[in-house]
Simulated assay, not measured.
Amino acid sequence: MPKTQRKWNTTDITDQSGRTAVVTGANSGIGLVTADALARAGAHVVLAVRDVRRGEAAAATVRGAKGSVEVRRLDLADLASVREFAAGWQGDLDLLVNNAGVMNIPEASTKDGFEMQFGTNHLGHFALTNLLLPHITDRVVTVASGAHRFPAGMHIHFDNLNLTGEYAPMVAYGQSKLANLLFTLDLQRRLTEAGSRVRALAAHPGWAATNLQGHDASVVRRVAMRVGNRVLAQDDKAGALPTLYAATQDLPGASYVGPDGLGEMRGAPTLVGRSRAASDPESARRLWTASEELTGVTFPRLAEASRTTDA
Rank of each mutant, 00 (worst) to 15 (best):
R276W: 07
Q234I: 14
V33K: 05
G18L: 02
A35G: 05
L185F: 04
L47Q: 00
G165A: 12
D260E: 13
D186M: 12
D92G: 07
D92A: 12
S196G: 05
A203H: 03
A39Q: 07
G18K: 06
R266E: 06
V69F: 06
M116V: 12
D186F: 15
A194T: 09
L212Q: 01
G101P: 12
T308M: 08
D138M: 05
A305G: 05
G296Y: 10
P300M: 07
V71E: 02
A233V: 01
G88A: 13
D51F: 11
N104D: 11
D159L: 06
Y245M: 09
G88H: 13
R285V: 12
H125T: 08
L287N: 03
D15T: 02
R54G: 05
L93T: 02
V220E: 13
L96P: 00
G239E: 06
H44W: 15
G263T: 07
A48N: 09
R230Y: 11
A290W: 09
A172E: 08
R6W: 03
D236C: 09
L178D: 01
W207H: 04
A144H: 03
A238Q: 15
S306E: 04
Q234T: 15
A108K: 04
Q117T: 01
Y245T: 06
D235R: 07
D78E: 15
P300N: 09
T24N: 15
A35M: 10
V227H: 08
S279M: 07
H215S: 11
E166W: 04
S81D: 08
P205V: 01
A247T: 09
R226Q: 09
T243P: 00
F183M: 02
D12Y: 07
V62S: 03
A168L: 08
W288L: 13
R149N: 06
S145G: 09
V257L: 10
L163F: 01
L302F: 12
A26T: 08
A77R: 01
V46D: 01
K111L: 11
L95H: 03
L163R: 11
V171Y: 08
V257A: 00
L131I: 15
N27Y: 00
H44N: 14
A254W: 03
A278P: 10
A108Y: 05
G88K: 14
M225G: 03
I156G: 03
G146E: 14
F126Y: 06
F299T: 05
R230V: 13
L271N: 01
I13N: 00
A203M: 07
N130D: 07
L132P: 09
G146N: 11
T248Y: 00
A127H: 10
S176E: 12
E84K: 00
A290G: 08
T210F: 14
V141E: 04
T295S: 07
I13C: 08
V223L: 12
A58L: 08
T4L: 11
A65C: 07
T4Y: 05
D138N: 04
F114D: 06
E56V: 08
T308Q: 13
D280P: 13
P269W: 02
R6H: 09
L201G: 02
S255M: 04
Y167R: 12
H135D: 13
F299M: 10
R73A: 15
A233G: 10
R307Q: 11
G25A: 07
G67E: 11
M154E: 14
G29F: 14
R19G: 03
P151I: 04
A277D: 09
G195E: 04
P281Q: 10
V49D: 05
T309V: 11
